[in-house]
Write a protein that binds this DNA or RNA. Structure first.
Lengths: 223, 223
DNA sequence: TCGCCGTTCCGTACGCCGTACGGTACAGTG
DNA sequence: CACTGTACCGTACGGCGTACGGAACGGCGA
């Protein structure tokens, strides 16, 4: 991994898939911000410009990584009532983001658009339509679900990162304890609960329950 | 704006507030990715290194911008029942993100932590506690709301950007029309509805209704 | 076997970036 | 008028994405 490639690398030891997989690894380790083609090339034991044989540039590579990382989220089909199907798909989506934290950054700048994400979208929409939503409301519910899952899971990932880094953790603690209680009484009182509850399966399921319960009620009121 | 500062700028024409305001402008125009201290300095008619008199570095400046942009979201207090208060606060938060699209990127890497965001957090938590949620559930509901608002509004901002850029717009259209209908029947059928409904007040209110309805039911079942 | 060619790999270079370091010039104080 | 602290900045370093042209290699027809 560290022996700088002094000699020319043999042909066809590389492939787009291999590059994408290695990029995903690096992205998860260092984050989207610090990721660079040069570092990726070094990891692969290859000159930076070689990557351009397989991708038009950094953007195209990142798109490919996003699709690749998201692809595994849509492996199996969901069964049961529409509520259960939705739960399953959303859980898988969250699981994939947690497994590949760089997805938070990738999805933020490049929302789902490739074939890989189509699988999840299809399943979600299908469950909603089968559940009884008309076209417009199914689309709106889909967007709501997607925004919720990505938004909440992003918060979760950030919190995990914070807790890993003692310095950043201390900084947040100082901000929290430095808040004037007379100005933010509720926030100060619940600061502990906030830090403890954010993240984790329970938090996610709580939100998912809320959204799905709201959907059920909406279905009763008007398809 | 374009005359390169050949002469030394007079003293004290600069201030942290002025820098932050100008940075927010530039960030909204070019996006978090393309933003650079050098470009900001040029806009201000100042040498790049001068910015370091007011901020320790780029990160600290971005934090300040995030707090500044978020600050205006918490100007007035919310009235009415807890549902109405929550609606008001979430709408203001979304409005602020729409007004300053760079917030999507800033919030993604630097979740709310400063005094400015404390105002919103305090109001939201207060409404939830007054509504009857216990400490744990109030915290969970707060995280759900925050994730939902940021997540959905981020999708909205991305769609607006896409629609502004004809090239990117065409690319998305091609992907959508290129999807095999036999594999993604529901998605293909509802593609139009998806593109039309994402974004806009109606979409946001739809999701907000869902979440709040879910909260009301949750309150009935167990505080 | 040899020569050719398309593909894959890469060395170099350019113009950006953030910022460490040290210097310069000015406001305010004595 | 000298002194000092601070606001401003010139220079430079290492790293980035990538345009461009060239080198090396596998495979194929002769």
């Amino acid at each position: 991994m560290e022996t700088t490639a002094r000699t020319r690398v043999p042909r066809n030891t590389l492939s787009a898939e291999l590059i994408v997989a290695s990029a995903l690894n690096l992205l998860d380790q260092v984050g989207v911000e610090a990721f660079s083609l040069r570092a990726l090339a070094k990891n692969l034991g290859v000159a930076p410009m070689t990557l351009y044989t397989y991708f038009r540039g950094k953007d195209e590579l990142l798109d490919a990584v996003r699709d690749h990382a998201l692809g595994a989220a849509a492996l199996t089909t969901a069964y049961g009532g529409w509520q259960h199907q939705i739960r399953t798909i959303c859980r898988r989506l969250r699981g994939q983001i947690l497994e590949h934290p760089c997805l938070t950054g990738l999805l933020q700048q490049r929302p789902l658009a490739g074939h890989e994400s189509a699988e999840s979208a299809e399943s979600l929409l299908k469950a909603l339509v089968e559940g009884g939503f008309n076209a417009e409301n199914a689309a709106r519910a889909y967007t709501t679900l997607l925004g919720f899952v990505v938004g909440v899971t992003t918060l979760e990932v950030r919190l995990l990162e914070e807790n890993r880094d003692p310095e950043r953790r201390e900084k947040v603690r100082q901000i929290m304890t430095g808040l004037p209680p007379e100005r933010y009484p509720t926030l100060v009182e619940h600061a502990g609960a906030l830090r403890q509850t954010v993240g984790g399966d329970t938090q996610f399921e709580f939100g998912l329950d809320l959204v799905i319960a709201g959907m059920e009620q909406r279905l009763i009121l008007a398809g």
